[in-house]
Design a protein around this nucleic acid. Structure first.
Lengths: 196, 196
DNA sequence: GACCCAAACTAACAACCGTTAGTTTACTGA
DNA sequence: TCAGTAAACTAACGGTTGTTAGTTTGGGTC
Protein backbone atom coordinates (compact mmCIF):
# COMPACT_ATOMS: atom_id res chain seq x y z
CA UNK A 1 0.00 0.00 0.00
CA UNK A 2 1.11 3.53 -0.70
CA UNK A 3 -0.27 6.83 0.54
CA UNK A 4 -3.35 6.58 -1.66
CA UNK A 5 -4.30 3.25 -0.14
CA UNK A 6 -3.76 1.22 -3.30
CA UNK A 7 -1.05 -1.21 -4.20
CA UNK A 8 1.27 -0.60 -7.12
CA UNK A 9 -0.51 -3.34 -9.03
CA UNK A 10 -3.86 -1.65 -8.51
CA UNK A 11 -2.37 1.66 -9.63
CA UNK A 12 -1.03 0.05 -12.80
CA UNK A 13 -4.35 -1.58 -13.65
CA UNK A 14 -6.25 1.62 -12.98
CA UNK A 15 -3.87 3.64 -15.13
CA UNK A 16 -4.07 1.01 -17.86
CA UNK A 17 -7.87 1.25 -17.84
CA UNK A 18 -7.58 5.00 -18.29
CA UNK A 19 -5.24 4.61 -21.25
CA UNK A 20 -7.37 1.82 -22.74
CA UNK A 21 -10.35 4.15 -22.60
CA UNK A 22 -8.50 6.83 -24.55
CA UNK A 23 -6.91 4.69 -27.27
CA UNK A 24 -8.12 1.13 -26.91
CA UNK A 25 -6.19 -1.92 -25.69
CA UNK A 26 -4.24 -2.58 -28.89
CA UNK A 27 -2.99 0.97 -29.31
CA UNK A 28 -1.62 1.23 -25.77
CA UNK A 29 1.92 -0.11 -25.45
CA UNK A 30 3.58 -1.30 -22.29
CA UNK A 31 5.97 1.62 -22.70
CA UNK A 32 3.00 4.03 -22.76
CA UNK A 33 1.69 2.46 -19.59
CA UNK A 34 5.09 2.49 -17.92
CA UNK A 35 5.56 6.18 -18.69
CA UNK A 36 2.13 6.93 -17.21
CA UNK A 37 3.16 5.35 -13.90
CA UNK A 38 6.70 6.80 -14.10
CA UNK A 39 8.68 3.61 -14.37
CA UNK A 40 10.29 1.63 -17.21
CA UNK A 41 8.34 -0.95 -19.17
CA UNK A 42 10.29 -3.89 -17.81
CA UNK A 43 9.50 -2.86 -14.24
CA UNK A 44 5.80 -3.38 -14.86
CA UNK A 45 6.48 -7.11 -14.83
CA UNK A 46 7.38 -6.99 -11.15
CA UNK A 47 3.66 -6.40 -10.57
CA UNK A 48 1.70 -7.96 -13.42
CA UNK A 49 2.06 -11.14 -15.47
CA UNK A 50 1.37 -9.73 -18.93
CA UNK A 51 -0.55 -7.08 -20.85
CA UNK A 52 -3.31 -9.62 -21.39
CA UNK A 53 -3.47 -10.19 -17.63
CA UNK A 54 -4.26 -6.50 -17.12
CA UNK A 55 -7.14 -6.62 -19.58
CA UNK A 56 -8.47 -9.77 -17.95
CA UNK A 57 -8.40 -8.14 -14.50
CA UNK A 58 -10.31 -5.11 -15.74
CA UNK A 59 -12.99 -6.88 -17.73
CA UNK A 60 -13.74 -10.08 -15.83
CA UNK A 61 -14.10 -8.41 -12.44
CA UNK A 62 -16.58 -5.92 -13.92
CA UNK A 63 -18.52 -8.58 -15.79
CA UNK A 64 -18.85 -10.65 -12.64
CA UNK A 65 -19.99 -7.59 -10.72
CA UNK A 66 -22.82 -7.13 -13.22
CA UNK A 67 -23.70 -10.80 -13.01
CA UNK A 68 -23.95 -10.68 -9.23
CA UNK A 69 -26.12 -7.56 -9.43
CA UNK A 70 -28.46 -9.14 -11.95
CA UNK A 71 -28.75 -12.27 -9.82
CA UNK A 72 -29.97 -10.22 -6.88
CA UNK A 73 -32.42 -8.25 -8.99
CA UNK A 74 -33.99 -11.18 -10.77
CA UNK A 75 -34.46 -13.09 -7.51
CA UNK A 76 -36.16 -10.14 -5.84
CA UNK A 77 -39.92 -10.12 -5.37
CA UNK A 78 -40.32 -6.64 -6.81
CA UNK A 79 -42.53 -5.59 -9.73
CA UNK A 80 -40.93 -5.26 -13.18
CA UNK A 81 -40.68 -1.47 -13.18
CA UNK A 82 -38.71 -1.56 -9.96
CA UNK A 83 -36.46 -4.29 -11.29
CA UNK A 84 -35.73 -2.10 -14.30
CA UNK A 85 -34.98 0.84 -12.02
CA UNK A 86 -32.63 -1.42 -10.07
CA UNK A 87 -30.82 -2.35 -13.30
CA UNK A 88 -30.42 1.33 -14.17
CA UNK A 89 -29.03 1.99 -10.69
CA UNK A 90 -26.67 -0.99 -11.00
CA UNK A 91 -25.17 0.41 -14.20
CA UNK A 92 -24.99 3.96 -12.88
CA UNK A 93 -23.23 2.88 -9.70
CA UNK A 94 -20.72 0.59 -11.33
CA UNK A 95 -19.98 3.15 -14.03
CA UNK A 96 -19.44 5.93 -11.50
CA UNK A 97 -16.93 3.95 -9.49
CA UNK A 98 -15.13 2.45 -12.51
CA UNK A 99 -15.66 4.70 -15.51
CA UNK A 100 -12.44 3.73 -17.24
CA UNK A 101 -12.97 0.02 -16.86
CA UNK A 102 -16.37 0.30 -18.50
CA UNK A 103 -14.69 1.46 -21.68
CA UNK A 104 -12.63 -1.72 -21.84
CA UNK A 105 -15.66 -3.85 -21.03
CA UNK A 106 -17.50 -2.28 -23.95
CA UNK A 107 -14.75 -1.95 -26.51
CA UNK A 108 -11.90 -4.32 -25.76
CA UNK A 109 -13.58 -7.57 -24.72
CA UNK A 110 -12.73 -9.11 -28.09
CA UNK A 111 -9.04 -8.92 -27.22
CA UNK A 112 -9.51 -11.31 -24.33
CA UNK A 113 -7.81 -14.58 -25.11
CA UNK A 114 -8.23 -17.40 -22.56
CA UNK A 115 -11.16 -15.68 -20.88
CA UNK A 116 -13.12 -14.74 -24.01
CA UNK A 117 -15.55 -17.65 -23.75
CA UNK A 118 -16.13 -16.98 -20.08
CA UNK A 119 -16.88 -13.34 -20.78
CA UNK A 120 -19.25 -14.15 -23.66
CA UNK A 121 -21.11 -16.59 -21.46
CA UNK A 122 -21.56 -14.01 -18.70
CA UNK A 123 -22.78 -11.44 -21.21
CA UNK A 124 -25.23 -13.82 -22.85
CA UNK A 125 -26.73 -14.80 -19.51
CA UNK A 126 -27.03 -11.17 -18.47
CA UNK A 127 -28.93 -10.26 -21.63
CA UNK A 128 -31.17 -13.31 -21.30
CA UNK A 129 -32.08 -12.41 -17.72
CA UNK A 130 -32.74 -8.83 -18.82
CA UNK A 131 -35.05 -9.84 -21.64
CA UNK A 132 -36.91 -12.28 -19.35
CA UNK A 133 -37.63 -9.46 -16.91
CA UNK A 134 -39.04 -7.39 -19.75
CA UNK A 135 -41.16 -10.26 -21.03
CA UNK A 136 -42.73 -10.88 -17.64
CA UNK A 137 -43.36 -7.14 -17.39
CA UNK A 138 -45.24 -7.27 -20.69
CA UNK A 139 -47.28 -10.26 -19.50
CA UNK A 140 -48.18 -8.41 -16.32
CA UNK A 141 -49.12 -5.43 -18.51
CA UNK A 142 -46.65 -3.34 -16.58
CA UNK A 143 -44.86 -2.30 -19.73
CA UNK A 144 -45.95 -1.67 -23.28
CA UNK A 145 -46.31 -4.67 -25.59
CA UNK A 146 -43.43 -3.90 -27.96
CA UNK A 147 -40.66 -6.19 -29.20
CA UNK A 148 -38.87 -7.21 -25.96
CA UNK A 149 -35.50 -7.35 -27.64
CA UNK A 150 -35.82 -3.83 -29.01
CA UNK A 151 -36.74 -2.61 -25.55
CA UNK A 152 -33.83 -4.46 -23.98
CA UNK A 153 -31.40 -3.27 -26.64
CA UNK A 154 -32.52 0.31 -26.33
CA UNK A 155 -32.13 0.41 -22.56
CA UNK A 156 -28.95 -1.64 -22.39
CA UNK A 157 -27.03 0.31 -25.00
CA UNK A 158 -27.84 3.54 -23.21
CA UNK A 159 -26.62 2.04 -19.95
CA UNK A 160 -23.52 0.60 -21.58
CA UNK A 161 -22.61 4.01 -22.95
CA UNK A 162 -22.88 5.77 -19.62
CA UNK A 163 -19.11 5.72 -19.25
CA UNK A 164 -18.86 8.17 -22.13
CA UNK A 165 -21.18 10.60 -20.52
CA UNK A 166 -20.88 10.41 -16.76
CA UNK A 167 -17.46 12.13 -16.68
CA UNK A 168 -19.02 15.21 -18.27
CA UNK A 169 -21.74 15.37 -15.64
CA UNK A 170 -19.72 15.33 -12.44
CA UNK A 171 -22.21 17.64 -10.79
CA UNK A 172 -24.97 15.03 -11.12
CA UNK A 173 -25.14 12.68 -8.14
CA UNK A 174 -25.52 8.98 -8.80
CA UNK A 175 -29.00 8.60 -7.37
CA UNK A 176 -30.22 11.70 -9.15
CA UNK A 177 -28.86 10.44 -12.46
CA UNK A 178 -30.40 7.01 -11.93
CA UNK A 179 -33.78 8.60 -11.30
CA UNK A 180 -33.62 10.95 -14.30
CA UNK A 181 -32.42 8.23 -16.59
CA UNK A 182 -34.96 5.75 -15.29
CA UNK A 183 -37.74 8.26 -15.96
CA UNK A 184 -36.66 8.79 -19.53
CA UNK A 185 -36.06 5.13 -20.27
CA UNK A 186 -39.24 3.86 -18.61
CA UNK A 187 -41.76 6.63 -19.16
CA UNK A 188 -40.31 7.85 -22.43
CA UNK A 189 -40.29 11.44 -23.58
CA UNK A 190 -43.91 11.75 -24.63
CA UNK A 191 -45.62 14.11 -22.14
CA UNK A 192 -48.93 12.27 -22.44
CA UNK A 193 -47.58 9.27 -20.57
CA UNK A 194 -48.54 9.01 -16.91
CA UNK A 195 -45.80 9.75 -14.40
CA UNK A 196 -44.93 6.49 -12.67
CA UNK B 1 -14.89 -1.70 -61.82
CA UNK B 2 -15.07 -5.43 -61.38
CA UNK B 3 -18.03 -7.77 -61.66
CA UNK B 4 -19.54 -6.58 -58.38
CA UNK B 5 -19.59 -3.00 -59.61
CA UNK B 6 -17.01 -1.70 -57.16
CA UNK B 7 -13.44 -0.65 -57.72
CA UNK B 8 -10.58 -2.47 -56.03
CA UNK B 9 -10.12 0.54 -53.78
CA UNK B 10 -13.73 0.39 -52.67
CA UNK B 11 -13.39 -3.32 -52.04
CA UNK B 12 -10.32 -2.73 -49.89
CA UNK B 13 -12.00 -0.02 -47.84
CA UNK B 14 -15.11 -2.11 -47.36
CA UNK B 15 -13.07 -5.11 -46.27
CA UNK B 16 -11.03 -2.93 -43.95
CA UNK B 17 -14.22 -1.64 -42.32
CA UNK B 18 -15.32 -5.22 -41.71
CA UNK B 19 -12.01 -6.09 -40.07
CA UNK B 20 -11.98 -2.85 -38.07
CA UNK B 21 -15.40 -3.77 -36.72
CA UNK B 22 -14.14 -7.14 -35.51
CA UNK B 23 -10.85 -6.11 -33.89
CA UNK B 24 -10.54 -2.35 -34.02
CA UNK B 25 -8.30 -0.20 -36.22
CA UNK B 26 -5.08 -0.70 -34.24
CA UNK B 27 -5.33 -4.49 -34.06
CA UNK B 28 -5.82 -4.91 -37.82
CA UNK B 29 -2.52 -5.08 -39.72
CA UNK B 30 -2.00 -4.32 -43.36
CA UNK B 31 -1.09 -7.99 -43.78
CA UNK B 32 -4.44 -9.01 -42.26
CA UNK B 33 -6.21 -6.72 -44.69
CA UNK B 34 -4.17 -7.95 -47.64
CA UNK B 35 -4.96 -11.56 -46.83
CA UNK B 36 -8.67 -10.73 -46.66
CA UNK B 37 -8.57 -9.35 -50.21
CA UNK B 38 -6.20 -12.09 -51.41
CA UNK B 39 -3.17 -10.01 -52.28
CA UNK B 40 0.12 -9.15 -50.55
CA UNK B 41 0.40 -6.23 -48.16
CA UNK B 42 2.60 -4.18 -50.47
CA UNK B 43 0.05 -4.44 -53.26
CA UNK B 44 -2.50 -2.54 -51.18
CA UNK B 45 -0.45 0.57 -51.81
CA UNK B 46 -1.29 0.47 -55.50
CA UNK B 47 -4.79 1.51 -54.41
CA UNK B 48 -4.58 3.40 -51.14
CA UNK B 49 -2.17 5.95 -49.70
CA UNK B 50 -1.85 4.58 -46.18
CA UNK B 51 -3.67 2.73 -43.41
CA UNK B 52 -4.65 6.09 -41.98
CA UNK B 53 -6.12 7.05 -45.35
CA UNK B 54 -8.48 4.06 -45.16
CA UNK B 55 -9.75 5.07 -41.74
CA UNK B 56 -10.24 8.64 -42.91
CA UNK B 57 -12.29 7.47 -45.90
CA UNK B 58 -14.54 5.34 -43.72
CA UNK B 59 -15.18 7.83 -40.95
CA UNK B 60 -15.30 11.21 -42.63
CA UNK B 61 -17.70 10.19 -45.39
CA UNK B 62 -20.08 8.75 -42.79
CA UNK B 63 -19.82 11.76 -40.51
CA UNK B 64 -20.58 14.09 -43.41
CA UNK B 65 -23.54 11.94 -44.38
CA UNK B 66 -24.98 12.39 -40.88
CA UNK B 67 -24.31 16.11 -41.02
CA UNK B 68 -26.16 16.48 -44.32
CA UNK B 69 -29.09 14.47 -42.95
CA UNK B 70 -29.31 16.59 -39.82
CA UNK B 71 -29.18 19.79 -41.89
CA UNK B 72 -32.24 18.66 -43.85
CA UNK B 73 -34.12 17.64 -40.71
CA UNK B 74 -33.48 20.77 -38.71
CA UNK B 75 -34.47 23.00 -41.63
CA UNK B 76 -37.75 21.15 -42.16
CA UNK B 77 -41.00 22.67 -40.97
CA UNK B 78 -42.14 19.52 -39.20
CA UNK B 79 -43.11 19.15 -35.54
CA UNK B 80 -40.50 17.89 -33.10
CA UNK B 81 -41.81 14.34 -32.84
CA UNK B 82 -41.52 13.94 -36.59
CA UNK B 83 -38.04 15.42 -36.59
CA UNK B 84 -37.04 12.82 -34.00
CA UNK B 85 -38.58 10.08 -36.09
CA UNK B 86 -36.58 11.38 -39.04
CA UNK B 87 -33.39 11.22 -37.00
CA UNK B 88 -34.16 7.62 -36.05
CA UNK B 89 -34.75 6.78 -39.71
CA UNK B 90 -31.52 8.54 -40.70
CA UNK B 91 -29.51 6.36 -38.33
CA UNK B 92 -31.33 3.17 -39.27
CA UNK B 93 -30.82 3.77 -42.99
CA UNK B 94 -27.16 4.71 -42.79
CA UNK B 95 -26.43 1.81 -40.44
CA UNK B 96 -28.19 -0.69 -42.70
CA UNK B 97 -26.19 0.30 -45.76
CA UNK B 98 -22.85 0.66 -43.93
CA UNK B 99 -22.92 -1.47 -40.80
CA UNK B 100 -19.18 -2.03 -40.71
CA UNK B 101 -18.29 1.61 -41.15
CA UNK B 102 -20.48 2.54 -38.20
CA UNK B 103 -18.23 0.49 -35.94
CA UNK B 104 -15.21 2.57 -36.94
CA UNK B 105 -17.18 5.78 -36.58
CA UNK B 106 -18.06 4.82 -33.03
CA UNK B 107 -14.88 3.15 -31.84
CA UNK B 108 -11.93 4.27 -33.93
CA UNK B 109 -12.43 8.00 -34.47
CA UNK B 110 -9.71 8.72 -31.91
CA UNK B 111 -7.15 7.18 -34.26
CA UNK B 112 -7.79 9.84 -36.86
CA UNK B 113 -4.78 12.06 -37.15
CA UNK B 114 -5.04 15.04 -39.53
CA UNK B 115 -8.83 14.82 -39.67
CA UNK B 116 -9.49 14.44 -35.95
CA UNK B 117 -10.41 18.08 -35.40
CA UNK B 118 -12.71 18.05 -38.41
CA UNK B 119 -14.48 14.95 -37.12
CA UNK B 120 -14.87 16.36 -33.60
CA UNK B 121 -16.33 19.54 -35.01
CA UNK B 122 -18.89 17.63 -37.08
CA UNK B 123 -19.87 15.53 -34.07
CA UNK B 124 -20.19 18.52 -31.78
CA UNK B 125 -22.44 20.34 -34.22
CA UNK B 126 -24.58 17.25 -34.72
CA UNK B 127 -25.15 16.87 -31.00
CA UNK B 128 -25.90 20.56 -30.61
CA UNK B 129 -28.50 20.45 -33.39
CA UNK B 130 -30.02 17.37 -31.79
CA UNK B 131 -30.32 18.95 -28.35
CA UNK B 132 -31.81 22.11 -29.85
CA UNK B 133 -34.55 20.07 -31.50
CA UNK B 134 -35.34 18.46 -28.14
CA UNK B 135 -35.37 21.81 -26.35
CA UNK B 136 -37.83 23.31 -28.80
CA UNK B 137 -39.94 20.18 -28.41
CA UNK B 138 -40.04 20.74 -24.67
CA UNK B 139 -41.01 24.39 -25.15
CA UNK B 140 -43.83 23.35 -27.48
CA UNK B 141 -44.85 20.80 -24.83
CA UNK B 142 -44.49 18.11 -27.43
CA UNK B 143 -42.11 16.13 -25.27
CA UNK B 144 -41.73 15.66 -21.54
CA UNK B 145 -39.86 18.32 -19.58
CA UNK B 146 -36.83 16.25 -18.58
CA UNK B 147 -33.15 17.11 -18.84
CA UNK B 148 -32.66 17.65 -22.61
CA UNK B 149 -29.14 16.28 -22.55
CA UNK B 150 -30.21 13.06 -20.86
CA UNK B 151 -32.93 12.63 -23.47
CA UNK B 152 -30.48 13.32 -26.30
CA UNK B 153 -27.86 11.02 -24.82
CA UNK B 154 -30.32 8.23 -24.29
CA UNK B 155 -31.64 8.33 -27.85
CA UNK B 156 -28.31 8.96 -29.53
CA UNK B 157 -26.41 6.17 -27.80
CA UNK B 158 -29.12 3.72 -28.79
CA UNK B 159 -28.90 4.89 -32.38
CA UNK B 160 -25.10 4.82 -32.35
CA UNK B 161 -25.16 1.22 -31.20
CA UNK B 162 -27.49 0.02 -33.93
CA UNK B 163 -24.55 -1.39 -35.87
CA UNK B 164 -24.11 -3.99 -33.16
CA UNK B 165 -27.64 -5.14 -33.40
CA UNK B 166 -28.91 -4.73 -36.93
CA UNK B 167 -26.86 -7.65 -38.31
CA UNK B 168 -28.69 -9.99 -35.92
CA UNK B 169 -32.08 -8.83 -37.14
CA UNK B 170 -31.76 -9.25 -40.87
CA UNK B 171 -35.42 -10.20 -41.11
CA UNK B 172 -36.46 -6.78 -39.87
CA UNK B 173 -36.92 -4.27 -42.68
CA UNK B 174 -35.48 -0.79 -42.26
CA UNK B 175 -38.77 1.07 -42.13
CA UNK B 176 -40.25 -1.43 -39.73
CA UNK B 177 -37.24 -1.17 -37.44
CA UNK B 178 -37.34 2.62 -37.57
CA UNK B 179 -41.00 2.58 -36.55
CA UNK B 180 -40.55 0.08 -33.71
CA UNK B 181 -37.50 1.87 -32.40
CA UNK B 182 -39.14 5.26 -32.71
CA UNK B 183 -42.11 4.03 -30.70
CA UNK B 184 -39.93 2.76 -27.89
CA UNK B 185 -37.68 5.81 -27.81
CA UNK B 186 -40.45 8.38 -28.07
CA UNK B 187 -43.38 6.80 -26.27
CA UNK B 188 -41.31 4.80 -23.82
CA UNK B 189 -42.20 1.42 -22.45
CA UNK B 190 -44.84 2.46 -19.96
CA UNK B 191 -48.24 1.23 -21.27
CA UNK B 192 -50.07 4.20 -19.74
CA UNK B 193 -48.57 6.57 -22.27
CA UNK B 194 -50.82 7.49 -25.18
CA UNK B 195 -49.92 5.98 -28.51
CA UNK B 196 -48.70 8.78 -30.78
C1' DG C 1 4.22 -8.49 -82.36
C1' DA C 2 5.77 -4.44 -79.77
C1' DC C 3 4.14 -1.51 -76.30
C1' DC C 4 1.67 0.21 -72.27
C1' DC C 5 0.19 0.21 -67.78
C1' DA C 6 -2.45 -1.24 -63.93
C1' DA C 7 -1.82 -4.31 -60.49
C1' DA C 8 0.29 -7.86 -58.70
C1' DC C 9 4.76 -9.62 -56.79
C1' DT C 10 9.51 -10.29 -53.70
C1' DA C 11 12.56 -8.33 -50.61
C1' DA C 12 13.72 -5.42 -47.36
C1' DC C 13 13.85 -1.28 -44.19
C1' DA C 14 13.76 1.09 -39.68
C1' DA C 15 10.89 1.42 -35.91
C1' DC C 16 8.38 -0.56 -32.46
C1' DC C 17 6.19 -4.50 -29.96
C1' DG C 18 5.75 -7.55 -25.52
C1' DT C 19 8.70 -9.76 -22.79
C1' DT C 20 13.00 -11.79 -20.43
C1' DA C 21 17.54 -11.85 -18.12
C1' DG C 22 20.48 -10.05 -15.16
C1' DT C 23 21.76 -6.11 -12.15
C1' DT C 24 21.26 -2.18 -8.99
C1' DT C 25 18.90 0.48 -5.57
C1' DA C 26 16.83 1.50 -1.24
C1' DC C 27 14.37 0.29 2.57
C1' DT C 28 13.30 -3.13 6.58
C1' DG C 29 13.87 -5.95 10.50
C1' DA C 30 17.08 -8.83 13.30
C1' DT D 1 25.57 -3.60 10.61
C1' DC D 2 24.19 -6.50 7.54
C1' DA D 3 21.28 -9.95 5.12
C1' DG D 4 16.88 -10.00 2.72
C1' DT D 5 13.70 -8.31 -0.40
C1' DA D 6 10.55 -5.54 -3.26
C1' DA D 7 10.90 -2.81 -6.96
C1' DA D 8 13.34 -0.25 -9.82
C1' DC D 9 16.91 -0.30 -13.57
C1' DT D 10 19.72 -1.39 -18.40
C1' DA D 11 20.12 -4.17 -22.25
C1' DA D 12 18.55 -7.00 -25.41
C1' DC D 13 15.70 -10.80 -27.71
C1' DG D 14 12.87 -12.37 -31.64
C1' DG D 15 8.90 -11.09 -33.90
C1' DT D 16 5.76 -7.73 -36.09
C1' DT D 17 4.61 -3.20 -37.83
C1' DG D 18 3.57 0.19 -41.87
C1' DT D 19 5.75 1.26 -45.75
C1' DT D 20 9.11 1.65 -49.85
C1' DA D 21 11.89 0.12 -53.86
C1' DG D 22 12.31 -2.38 -57.59
C1' DT D 23 10.50 -6.20 -60.54
C1' DT D 24 7.21 -9.28 -62.87
C1' DT D 25 2.82 -10.40 -64.84
C1' DG D 26 -0.92 -10.29 -68.00
C1' DG D 27 -4.54 -8.34 -70.65
C1' DG D 28 -5.75 -4.46 -74.04
C1' DT D 29 -4.27 -1.22 -77.96
C1' DC D 30 -1.81 0.40 -82.01
Amino acid sequence: MNSTGQTRKEEIIKTAAKLFKEKGYSAVTMRDLAKAVNIRAASLYNHIDSKQDILKSIIISLAEEFTRGMETIKNSEDVTINKLRAIVALHVNITIHNTYGMASLNNDWMHLEDQLDHYLSLRKNYEQDFVEIIKSGIEAQEIRDSNPEIIMFSILTTLRSLYLWIPKKEDLKGQELAKNLGDVLINGINPKSTKA
